[in-house]
Design a protein around this nucleic acid. Sequence first.
DNA 1: CTGTCGTACTACGGCTGTCGTAGTAGAATA
DNA 2: TATTCTACTACGACAGCCGTAGTACGACAG
Lengths: 114, 114
Amino acid sequence: MAEISSDVIRGYNDTIILYLLLDGPSYGYEISKRIRTGAEEKYIIKETTLYSAFTRMEKNGYIESFTDEVMSGGKKRTYYRITDSGREYYKAKCEEWQLTKEVIEKFIVKQGEV
Amino acid sequence: MAEISSDVIRGYNDTIILYLLLDGPSYGYEISKRIRTGAEEKYIIKETTLYSAFTRMEKNGYIESFTDEVMSGGKKRTYYRITDSGREYYKAKCEEWQLTKEVIEKFIVKQGEV
DNA sequence: CTGTCGTACTACGGCTGTCGTAGTAGAATA
DNA sequence: TATTCTACTACGACAGCCGTAGTACGACAG
């Protein structure tokens, strides 16, 4: 049974997270679950990957964080909100994806005999 | 102008090379040019990336090398030939690609407003 | 009342593949 | 005589993913 390529996802984890933040602010644990269900269990993001993506994207100005007052699960939730710059980045990534896909598919054989 | 994502390609350079070797043995410089033209100049593989891919794939048994007797361009050409194991790997990668693409596209908005 | 599961993270270090830079070497072209 | 093209090789840096582990609280089962 084929697995997702984490080397492809590599370039798109940030994009996936930003997509989910378009609906409004969210936090690690929830994003993680929404990725899993959104991908129909075919892709489960690793916690470390997810949280390091948050740190990186905040540094780059694509998202902003704010902390919940209430404790949830023994920790304070850190929420993230997408910025305008994040929206632009997301858009650019979507365009890039179309191009990248086209290129790769010139070298991929669908179902045919190899 | 959007550029190809080298973080996506990362997982597929090996696959692209193997695809080109399906036609018969070839060598670095030629593969490089065939990638560039095959991708309509939208993707140009870096030499270091290409040659390190050869080394890796030979180690993994996906390709075999043999050296040309004749000198070409001041160096002896090293040809590579795909193995059965390489063909299997290529096939698996093609299937993986379909799945990965599906997953990513659940989080990508086409042309729509963001 | 003790242990496991779920929530919600943080820290650290290793690995892989890509990439920049640089060098070698001969033939061909200007 | 110099640049371009061919055909590589070596070295080291870097980014992002991932395994492992630890912290901390509530809820629920046995």
